[in-house]
Amino acid sequence: MTPKPKILIIDDEKDYLETLTERLKLRGFDCLMALDGESGLKVLAAEKPKLVLLDLKMPGLSGLEVLKIIREQYPQTRVIIITGHGSEKEKKLCLELGAVECFNKPVDFKVLIKKIKEIL
């Protein structure tokens, strides 16, 4: 049996992080959690997840910076941005930097699942 594809979720909102993780787990995804960019990158190095769900506005490393690092160091890893700070400019920038999709919070869960399934 092939191991389940891993999804790393990086978000500074703990409640959001946990509920989203649990919901994805319920649907059979293997989820990893990180509360900021630095720890997220550590988990990334150790676990090599196939997909990262990334928040943009975080303390420490910002989502954009994390996105750049991921695209440089782990070009195989796909990134979906989920942000509450939905400026068109940022969205455009993220897509240019190589994010697969950019969602605004609160995100429609069905749409999210559909996208995740597409990628994995």
Partner: peptide
Amino acid sequence: AHEINNPLAIINETAGLIKDIFTF
């Protein structure tokens, strides 16, 4: 709008989780 979006997202996911739990 931005400030409300974050708690809204949590409410959304939490409610979604409750629904998931019920469904599963």
